[in-house]
């Protein structure tokens, strides 16, 4: 297709898409005027019913926990697919760790970057643990906290110590964590089925709203999802890092 024809096609497409968008936008509720009833209902009911002060987490891990199960396995399947696509193929070989050892380091990692990075690992890990365990009380939860936990390991790599990152997170352990985290969330759902007769029913004592141990199964679900997400992202990054730094073609 010539440049001119491509431009004509683009202009025609954007004219149609723009018209539809503008027509759609004119029918939206005004800014700040929320029409749906469900948000208001949940805002009023979540704390008395589930004893969790973060309504968003209560929705994600209780009222629509089954949807979250699906989302969780989307991430699981995506990372599984990536691990299969990026596996070491015939004709590729890994470089031995001590051979050309400098290339295992992040190019340009100065000692200042290393010091700042290593200083950040602890606080980042702590922040991740906080976000995972306080999902039922404040904004955050398993997904966000899990990525922060994985980021703590990524900082080890950025500080210039790729091999240390591999030692701190061995492949087998990361894979086990990802699978066990995903399974534990499904098992919590099954627990609801066994103890209350409904899949994902909140079957643990709800406790006092605002306390760390409250909202029944919600904090447990968050920890399971946190482990799964952290494992999934570490696996994702190490597969990519292996491709970029270690695996070589013939």
């Amino acid at each position: 297709m010539s440049r001119r024809a491509r431009r004509m096609l683009f202009l025609a497409a954007i004219a149609v898409a723009g018209t539809v968008l503008i027509a759609g936008f004119t029918d939206l509720p005004g800014f700040g005027h929320y029409r749906g009833p469900y948000g208001k209902v949940l805002n009023d009911l979540a704390v008395p019913q589930r004893h969790g002060t973060d309504v968003v987490t209560a929705v994600n891990f209780d009222y629509r926990a089954f949807d979250t199960l699906g989302e969780e396995f989307i991430l699981f399947a995506a990372v599984l697919g990536l691990a299969i696509v990026l596996r070491q193929r015939r004709g590729e070989h890994t470089r031995a760790p001590d051979e050309r050892g400098d290339e295992h380091r992040f190019p340009g990692a100065s000692s200042a970057l290393g010091a700042v990075g290593l200083g950040l690992v602890g606080p980042t890990l702590l922040l991740g643990l906080y976000v995972v365990t306080h999902g039922q009380l404040t904004p955050g939860g398993g997904f966000q906290g899990g990525v922060v936990l994985a980021a703590a390991l990524l900082i080890v790599f950025l500080a210039g110590e790729y091999l240390v990152m591999r030692v701190m997170a061995p492949h087998a352990l990361v894979e086990l964590g990802e699978a066990a985290g995903a399974a534990s969330y499904a098992l919590i759902g099954l627990g609801g089925l066994i103890f209350s007769g409904v899949f994902f029913h909140n079957f643990i004592a709800l406790g006092t709203p605002g306390k760390l141990l409250s909202a029944g199964t919600i904090p447990l679900s968050n920890i399971g999802v946190g482990i799964e997400v952290a494992g999934a992202f570490i696996l994702l990054w190490t597969e990519f890092l292996d491709q970029a730094l270690v695996v070589r073609g013939t």
């Binding site: 968003v56 987490t57 976000v131 904004p139 966000q144 922060v148």
Partner: peptide, 14 residues
């Protein structure tokens, strides 16, 4: 804030 946290971890880390 929940959505903001997700956006931060995805857009600035992942």
């Amino acid at each position: 804030p929940d959505v903001a946290l997700s956006e931060i971890v995805v857009a600035t880390v992942a």
